[in-house]
Design a protein around this nucleic acid. Structure first.
Lengths: 144, 144
DNA sequence: CATCAAATACAACAAAATTGCATTAAGAAT
DNA sequence: ATTCTTAATGCAATTTTGTTGTATTTGATG
């Protein structure tokens, strides 16, 4: 099923209307790196109001269509695993660059095991790596 | 080495001054659960200005003294592993309870490997598990 | 295509974070 | 110990980010 069809299916299943604002926001998130809300709002300029972006994202998170990820001091929004391959992030504390770290079966299995041991019926998990990319690591002036 | 001595060592090693603001913020973070910035600011009332709290935390994050952790939609600050035993969190989406998940050598080794592969000199990482604890899992009324 | 609730835009507001700059204080030099 | 220098702080102002209330519009339904 292609992305937008899945979106429509989720919205309908939850008795939510399919609106221009919701489609616009969704399309801005497709096939993209995690985006700051500010950049989504900018992308909606003239089409969808700021407030509606917040409300759409609010809904999308409740429905599991998007999730927040922390990148350093900021958070960004990305589509959930139902739309993207499951992955994690490696963020550079120097320059803010974010790299995607693809799923690794071995790791995921371990995380499953860990959650079971902790007595949690896990529905999702987040793994974020922080450090310095090659460029920043060899360039101390970015490290303060 | 006790906590404050380590803090001093890190600051000095990075040519940073040891100031009242930095000590006050540090002491608010010791032996505590992850804290919201707002609560750190509140704890500094009358002692350290809001703006300085932001600046101290900024520095502390760059130096790896603190890290952000995601608790649902909010982030909180906690001391890094140099000060606390390394651990992760398992949060119940039903009742909000947060359980500490202790270090697991196998998992940590994999994460190290993963970061190396991604080209990041990792200084820290965060793993957060979300789901439902036993009580909430058997009690669907908490699942919305 | 008429209806009606849900979703949106817009304005006003509130909260969180940042910036610029004058003042203070930490730590080095003497 | 005292002076000197620059980093760090406090404070005011501002910007950015997020929220609320409400009149209007729009999407789904019959």
């Amino acid at each position: 099923m292609h992305d937008e069809a899945l979106l429509r299916k989720i919205l309908i299943a939850n008795h939510q209307k399919i609106t221009k604002a919701r489609l616009t926001v969704f399309n801005l998130l497709r096939s993209k790196e995690p985006q700051a809300i500010a950049s989504i709002i900018a992308g909606c300029k003239g089409e969808v109001d700021r407030v509606s972006v917040y409300r759409v994202l609010d809904l999308y998170e409740k429905l599991g269509i998007v999730k927040r990820v922390n990148i350093g001091w900021k958070y960004k929004i990305e589509l959930s695993d139902a739309f993207l391959d499951h992955h994690h992030h490696a963020s550079c504390l120097g320059c803010g660059k974010v790299m995607s770290v693809m799923e690794n079966g071995e790791l995921e299995a371990l995380i499953e095991k860990l959650s079971a041991k902790s007595g949690l019926t896990m529905t999702s998990h987040v793994l974020e790596l922080y450090g310095y990319c090659y460029a920043c690591d060899t360039n101390t002036k970015n490290r303060t």
